[in-house]
């Protein structure tokens, strides 16, 4: 019997759908076993189609993206109600995603910057008709409703999605591995004493040596090993988009802990190397960090 599934998109780039469709011919193995009840990215479903379904009638619900608007929150709650197994699909859904970086400012500041002050805006006005309204700050979906499973990644690779879907269809467990990108990386590593950090466009990157040893900020050491070290294999440092392994509570804090141990610089030099620690250390999971929650409380208090 095919399993009834739904794919819901909250605020996101829909790249996770792209990654799923990138399965190409392997899609043919999976699709006959799925009865798709809702997937607006591919077929013209309306929200009312989803709302009409009986409670708990979906075997698996996939939620992509984070709650930037009130409508996203509503869709998330409907998905929870209809799904037996709810899956947080992609880093936005698991940790808040890149949108979470907006938690550095109040929603009013963010709206002003985006709609009124952006350099390309010629007719500054804030849209207020027929729009659902913004949420005050990004909260990771698992803090809003409970999830049975998370698949991080920006986006998760086609293989990750395939493995997860097959596990869900066959009823096998799908556990996140407690390994890092470094465990999957083919580069040669040495004892680390980093004296200087470079931007990725500076100098020539040796394709065989560890990027960190060469002074490029590669976050593979604190990032979950699910992607097969795609970026380091292509001569590009890991940005940490998959978030931390399950045993790590705070991604950026762990990155700071590791950097403190492997750098050989004065505190002042080190500070000057990272003028934007939030952007560098919390690329897709700032909303899930301790510091974002403290800063949000601070802001709502002074308001």
């Amino acid at each position: 019997m095919p399993k009834r599934v739904a794919f819901a998109q909250l605020s996101s780039c829909w790249g996770c759908d792209q990654s799923l469709v990138d399965l190409h011919l392997r899609l043919l193995e999976v699709l006959p076993q799925l009865e798709i009840k809702y997937w607006p990215a591919v077929v013209d479903y309306k929200l009312s189609d989803l709302e009409r379904l009986p409670k708990g009638s979906l075997h698996v619900g996939f939620v992509e993206g984070s709650c930037r608007t009130q409508e996203d929150v509503h869709l998330l709650e409907v998905m929870r109600e209809k799904s037996q197994v709810l899956v947080a699909w992609g880093s936005c859904s698991c940790y808040g995603g890149v949108q979470g970086l907006a938690n550095q400012w109040s929603i009013d500041e963010a709206i002003t910057r985006k709609f009124l002050k952006a350099d390309t805006v010629t007719d500054p006005r804030v849209p207020d008709e027929n729009v659902p309204g913004f949420t005050d700050h990004i909260v990771p979906n698992p803090d809003i409703v409970p999830f049975e499973l998370i698949i991080p990644g920006c986006p998760p690779t086609s293989d990750n999605i395939y493995d997860a879907v097959v596990a869900l269809l066959t009823g096998k467990p799908f556990d996140l591995p407690d390994r890092t990108v470094c465990d999957e990386c083919p580069r040669e590593r040495e004892e680390k004493h980093i004296k200087e950090f470079h931007r990725t466009y500076e100098g020539h990157i040796d394709p065989n040596k560890c990027l960190l040893d060469q002074g490029y900020l590669c976050l593979g050491f604190a990032t979950i090993g699910l992607c097969g070290a795609q970026c380091p294999s292509a001569n590009s440092p890991c940005k940490g988009c998959f978030g931390p392994p399950p045993s790590i509570k705070d991604h950026g804090a762990k990155i700071i802990a590791a950097l403190g141990a492997i750098t050989d610089m004065s505190p002042e030099e080190l500070k000057s190397m990272f003028p934007d620690p939030i952007g560098s250390f919390y690329f897709t999971d700032y909303a899930a960090s301790f510091i974002s929650k403290i800063a949000t409380a601070e802001r709502s208090d002074t308001k």
Partner: peptide, 8 residues
Amino acid sequence: NLLEEAGV
């Protein structure tokens, strides 16, 4: 640095 940038 992190605290400062976050506004704490």
